[in-house]
């Protein structure tokens, strides 16, 4: 199951493990280019990436979902750490963590399907945020499994457009990322 939202560099290898990496970086121009350039230049792949400011406007947090065998992931983490504006790198796959993604999806809504769509949205605790003559636009938040499940139900009904934010993730428990080792 592949979607247009995934930025891929290099081969997609399903045998490789999926890793969710979270970073703290200096909030300065060019940081995203440095990180994207590192992935493309070294042939690492990015499944998705999201970035935004933290409470401290001088610092941004980034969540990168990537795949690779242990040796590749070791290099990814080390190379990220080597970048000068990168303050901290944590591979959440070693931790207990939560991840969420939000999607907006525009679904064809006909006489016959309107009811069913609303039912599905309800079950998945989503929201209809816009109604067109022939479409519903739905907002939903969840982890990868939930979103994939929803999309598999909506697909047969006709998806006109899909936008995903990419994953954000955080470790469980009381420790902040800066306190993780």
């Amino acid at each position: 199951m592949e979607f247009i939202w995934s930025l891929e560099f290099g081969d997609w290898n399903l045998i490789n493990m999926r890793h969710v990496i979270t970073l703290l970086v200096e909030n300065e121009f060019g940081v995203l280019a440095r990180i994207a350039g590192l992935f493309s230049g070294r042939g690492f792949n990015i499944e998705c990436l999201s970035v935004a400011e933290t409470l401290d406007p001088a610092v941004s947090t980034m969540t990168i979902v990537t795949r690779g065998d242990d040796q590749i992931i070791e290099q990814v983490l080390k190379q990220l750490n080597k970048l000068i504006p990168v303050i901290k790198v944590v591979d959440l796959i070693d931790k207990d963590f939560v991840e969420r993604e939000m999607i907006l999806v525009k679904v064809l809504a006909t006489e016959k399907t309107r009811e069913e769509i609303l039912r599905i949205v309800d079950i998945f605790r989503g929201k209809v945020i816009d109604v067109g003559a022939k479409t519903y636009t739905i907002e939903i938040t969840g982890d990868e499994k939930k979103i994939d499940a929803l999309l598999s139900l909506l697909k047969p009904l006709g998806i006109k457009e899909l936008v995903r934010t990419g994953r954000v993730a955080m470790s469980r428990g009381s420790k902040a990322m800066t306190e993780l080792t």
């Binding site: 121009f29 060019g30 280019a33 440095r34 350039g37 590192l38 230049g41 000068i84």
Partner: peptide
């Protein structure tokens, strides 16, 4: 932009 991958670091 051009020298990003071949410098240890760079500044504008």
């Amino acid at each position: 932009g051009i020298t990003r991958p071949c410098t240890k670091h760079n500044y504008l």
